[in-house]
């Protein structure tokens, strides 16, 4: 489903995503988006866990103190995993 060319380095939206720069350190952001390390990370993303492959088990401690392991979903549920932070 995902298009190999469909990986975005920045959020879409107004000003081609540059709206978010209002909140960021411009120099740091410029260095990030032009760095080879970041370019390599985005280029490698489709190959880290290829579509159609077995997804690795993820175990996390939840904010309410439980432990959740995606193994529990197997054969029971589909799941969507997001990664994120406040900033």
């Amino acid at each position: 489903m995902a298009k190999p060319e469909g990986y975005f380095k920045r959020p879409p939206g107004p000003l081609a995503g540059f709206w978010s720069w209002k909140y960021l350190n411009l120099l740091k952001t410029f260095r990030l988006v032009t760095s080879n390390r970041v370019r390599r990370a985005y280029a490698a993303f489709p190959t880290m866990v290829p579509l159609g492959s077995r997804f690795p088990e993820i175990e996390l401690t939840t904010t309410d103190g439980r432990t959740v392991n995606t193994r529990a979903f197997r054969a029971e549920k589909h799941f969507v995993l997001f990664t994120g932070a406040i900033t």
């Binding site: 549920k77 589909h78 995993l81 990664t83 932070a85």
Partner: peptide
């Protein structure tokens, strides 16, 4: 039957 999970 879809579970949603965020990894902080």
């Amino acid at each position: 039957g879809v579970e949603f999970l965020t990894m902080y």
